[in-house]
Computed example of a mutant assay.
Amino acid sequence: MDHTQTFDGPKAPGGKKIESTVETSTTPADKGLVGSDRVLAVLKELARHPDGVGLEELTRVIASPKPTVHRALQSLRRAGLADQDARGRYLLGDEFLRMAFAHHEARPEHVRVRPALEALAERFNETVHYAVLDGHEVVYRAKVDPPTGAVRLTSTVGGRNPAHATGVGKLLLANELATLADVEAWTGGDPLERRTPQTHCTAAALHQEFQATRERGYAVDDQENETGVNCIALPVYATSATAPSGAVSVSALTYRTPLHVLTDAYDEIRSLLGPLGTPIA
């Protein structure tokens, strides 16, 4: 059992007192996250609340005692990575945002790929993504919405999706997992998430998909990640002459742009990618 003493601390903007605590013992829940792991968990949770989040909710989600979560917040505030508004709610700090945007803008592949994304979005009037593989997920590094008219997708830069359920993920996995044994090792025998009735969730089904992807030079997402949305994905060679650094996808609502329209435009999409879409033999 924790015994906690509360006392008045410094004041936040607007005159609201910041609660300070002294922790005298540790609960079993506290042992799950310690030190820097807890600080990082708090930082990641703050990113999910652009309007701010209270200490009570953070404590519940992080599953650590209030004093330890509060100390993690104070560490982040001292570094400028978190802030507290006039309501006493916590949110990401300006320094974190500055670092994140500066790092994102400096990525060489982001800078090089952007013109091609803009050209594709304008040509097809659909959303275009650039994504990279990170383990069992894809991470969206860039996104360009259509300039006018079309419905925009809810995907975000920095967002993630299961690799096996996306066109970009299957394109990149096809480059890495050449055999059925490779695919089975990647899945680890664990069941894969079924995002829609169309999602391929077995090693055998994915191996077949990867073979088809390698043969035709592109991958497809036939409503496998989200019902009503399909896409075509092509490799991008932004940082290597032989291995894809990531993949570009043209994503569309199925009622407006059926999958066959995208696949029929494969040659045009590859042309718009220019040198980025062609490996050097």
Rank of each mutant, 00 (worst) to 15 (best):
V168P: 05
S251W: 01
T127D: 13
C201M: 06
Q208W: 05
E137Y: 08
V61D: 06
Q74V: 12
L272V: 04
L234G: 05
D134S: 15
L97V: 13
P108W: 09
P162V: 08
E105S: 03
A265P: 10
Y237S: 05
V236R: 07
K16N: 14
T213R: 10
M99L: 15
I269R: 11
T127F: 08
Q84R: 15
A252S: 03
T26N: 09
H129Y: 15
G15F: 07
G246K: 03
D267M: 08
R114C: 02
E126Q: 15
P146L: 09
G9S: 00
E226G: 08
Y140R: 13
G189Y: 13
Y266F: 07
V229A: 02
P108I: 06
A131C: 04
L173N: 04
D264A: 11
D264W: 04
A241E: 15
T4C: 06
Q198H: 13
A219V: 00
R87K: 15
T278A: 08
L40V: 14
I62H: 02
S20P: 11
V132Y: 09
S251I: 02
L55E: 12
D264K: 11
A106L: 09
H260C: 04
A79L: 11
T148K: 15
T202D: 00
C231I: 01
T196M: 01
D51E: 14
H110M: 01
T26A: 07
I269N: 06
V183S: 03
F101K: 10
T166G: 04
A233F: 08
D190W: 07
L46F: 05
L153F: 03
V138D: 07
R216H: 09
L120N: 03
V53M: 12
D221F: 00
T68Y: 12
T26C: 04
D94S: 11
L173M: 05
T166V: 00
E105D: 12
L172H: 00
M99V: 15
R216F: 00
L171C: 07
A252Q: 05
G14S: 02
A233Q: 01
E193D: 11
I280P: 00
R98N: 01
Q5R: 14
L272D: 02
D8M: 12
V53H: 11
A204Y: 11
V39T: 15
T199F: 00
H136I: 03
A178W: 02
E184M: 14
E215M: 01
H104I: 02
G54D: 14
V220M: 07
